[in-house]
């Protein structure tokens, strides 16, 4: 899922300082699972803003709304009534959600209240780790189901490098060496011979370097 984190309150305060009526728009999908958005998080931010604005003598209303997915037109369009009354939509969704709001409501300001971080998963309560960079050409079948692009700090295709010490990465001792994980997993599966093959340069044209990407599925329109 997409992992995000709320911006510091100081920054949100600055972003909203010129607006009168604000609609805080939460998303109940990925960013709710990582506790950055959802009904409660929206209500907490709304409460904080209401108090701060009252203390600063700012007028206006703070409205709240949460929908299933802020990245889909159907859900976003259903917000129209509340959006019309607002000067600013403060989105508690990932960057995709903010841009959906900006596109669907071209005359309204849509600002982000979250910093979108990465695609990852929860590893323990309150901790999320990155698993996928969306490079566009998956090679997990070659690496024991552990992605060297996302999990190796240097995205090496033939690792580990000399900076792997005791299973940890030289970039940060908190990071597990991706290639150590790959080695351990392949060893467990009895597939270490897969590492004898030298992986050739990856085709990065499927990655971000080609500009914004798109996926077309012809059958979707049928």
């Amino acid at each position: 899922m997409i992992i995000a984190d709320r911006k510091p309150f100081e920054e949100i305060k600055e972003l909203t300082s010129k607006a009168k009526n604000i609609l805080i728009a939460g998303c109940d999908s990925c960013v709710a699972v990582c506790l950055a958005s959802g009904e409660k998080e929206v209500a907490v931010l709304a409460s904080e803003l209401r108090m701060q604005r009252k203390m600063d003598g700012l007028e206006g209303e703070i409205e709240e709304i949460v929908n299933v997915r802020q990245c889909e037109n159907e859900y976003v369009d259903a917000m129209r009534d509340k959006v019309e009354k607002a000067d600013l939509i403060l989105s508690m969704a990932c960057g995709v959600g903010v841009q959906t709001l900006a596109e669907r409501f071209p005359d309204k300001l849509a600002y982000p209240a979250l910093n979108t971080k990465f695609m990852g998963r929860p590893v323990e309560p309150g901790v999320w780790k990155e698993n996928c960079e969306g490079c566009g050409h998956c090679i997990l079948h070659l690496t024991g189901g552990i992605c060297p692009v996302a999990r190796c700090s240097k995205s090496m295709l033939n690792g580990p490098c000399g900076g792997s010490q005791g299973g940890k990465c030289e970039v940060d001792p908190e990071i597990d060496c991706g290639w150590q994980l790959i080695y351990d997993r392949l060893s467990r599966l009895g597939q270490l011979d897969a590492l004898v093959e030298i992986m050739l340069s990856k085709d990065w044209s499927t990655s971000w370097s080609g500009g914004p990407r798109r996926v077309i599925k012809e059958s979707a329109g049928v």
């Binding site: 907490v44 409460s47 108090m51």
Partner: peptide, 11 residues
Amino acid sequence: VDELYLLKAFE
């Protein structure tokens, strides 16, 4: 007790 109970009390 919920974070919101506490915030609402202050509000």
